[in-house]
């Protein structure tokens, strides 16, 4: 199978859906000629023109608000938010407006809008351009949240998001845009709420999102050499969450570490760990561990930044302890 980058996969998904459905359009800062700072959308304005690939002024609340209105009145906007950190600016448009219209109109209105944005530290972009804020959005009922872990997921999830009648936020890890993965030429969609078992194992389950899937896979590789068999599961969407697959795995292995690049406290890892605890308690042979980013603003110093996020070594070290029955926290 051909291999393409995550960036190309997103571009293809959007182009295919824009060709298929004339109501789909793109808007955001620097999306047209510039093709975004990460060059993900390059070439789209040439094919679809500036009527369907709209450069907006630098006002996130303004253009996200416009997209919500466009979605409510029949269009299917894809809004580009240059950095995930700017989510703070559009909280009202996204969480108060887009997320609640369907409910508050008694089902008469829908907001088929995709907000594509990014996440991920270790790009030396400092505290205001390195955050992974998926937990903020996932907390709000009415918004779906997808977190692709490779080019394959990026394309399939984007196409599903565009066809979904609800607001969907897609967080792409900005460090993975150039990562290649096999992506079929033929069309495919990845349904929301279906986790992907990336690697089967019997001793411990790693539930990892986005680029943390790679971290978990590396840790699993290391542990395999030591005789510890780790299962790696990528939920692919955290809202909706495929609980059934996660619970089945944890009931099989009796141990789990949940890994996500958002801050650990009150985060995605906390939510998933808590569900495992509630629903698989009598199958647990070790406490479910969370591994998120440290609860500090992402440092600019490269040496510091690198240790604030989960690493394969850290995941493997915790897994060894859990599998050996060692207590990570004292009784």
């Amino acid at each position: 199978m051909r291999e393409i980058t995550l960036s190309q996969a997103v571009n293809e998904a959007i182009a295919e859906e824009m060709r298929r459905d004339p109501t789909v359009f793109l808007m955001g800062e620097d999306v047209a000629e510039a093709g975004t700072p990460f060059k993900v959308l390059s070439g789209l304005v040439e094919e679809f023109g500036t009527d369907r690939v709209l450069d907006t002024p630098i006002s996130e609340p303004g253009f996200v608000g416009m997209a919500v209105g466009a979605a409510m009145t029949g269009a299917r906007p894809i809004v580009d938010l240059m950095f995930g950190d700017f989510i703070y600016l559009v909280m009202d448009q996204l969480c108060n407006q887009a997320a609640k219209q369907h409910y508050m109109s008694g089902g008469k209105l829908t907001v088929p809008m995709v907000l594509r944005t990014n996440m991920g530290a270790t790009r030396r972009s400092a505290a205001q351009h390195s955050q992974s804020l998926q937990a903020l959005v996932a907390h709000i009922p009415g918004v779906k949240v997808a977190m692709p872990s490779s080019a394959y997921e990026a394309k399939g999830l984007m196409k599903t998001a565009i066809r979904d009648n609800n607001p969907v936020v897609i967080f792409e890890d900005k460090l993975m845009y150039q990562d290649k993965a096999p992506v079929p030429e033929e069309e495919y969609l990845i349904p929301f709420g279906e986790a992907n078992v990336k690697r089967e194992g019997s001793d411990i389950t790693f539930i990892a999102t986005s680029s943390m899937v790679q971290v978990a896979e590396k840790a699993a590789e290391t542990l395999a050499a030591e005789g510890i068999s780790a299962e790696v599961i990528d939920p692919r969407t955290i809202v909706p969450l495929d609980e059934a697959t996660l619970l089945a795995s944890v009931k099989k292995t009796s141990r789990a570490i949940v890994i996500d690049e958002g801050h650990q406290s009150y985060g995605v890892t906390a939510e998933i760990a808590s569900r495992l605890n509630e629903k698989a308690f009598y199958h647990l042979d070790a406490p479910v561990l969370r591994m998120g980013a440290m609860d500090v603003p992402v440092p600019f110093s490269p040496a510091l930044e690198d240790i604030t996020v989960p690493t394969p070594e850290g995941v493997a070290a915790n897994a060894r302890k859990l599998c050996a029955g060692e207590m990570i926290y004292a009784a």
Binding site: S254, F281, Y282, H283, L284, D285, A286, A331
Partner: peptide, 9 residues
């Protein structure tokens, strides 16, 4: 006695 939920079950 300190035991995991699974061991206890």
């Amino acid at each position: 006695i300190l035991a995991s939920p699974k061991a206890r079950r």
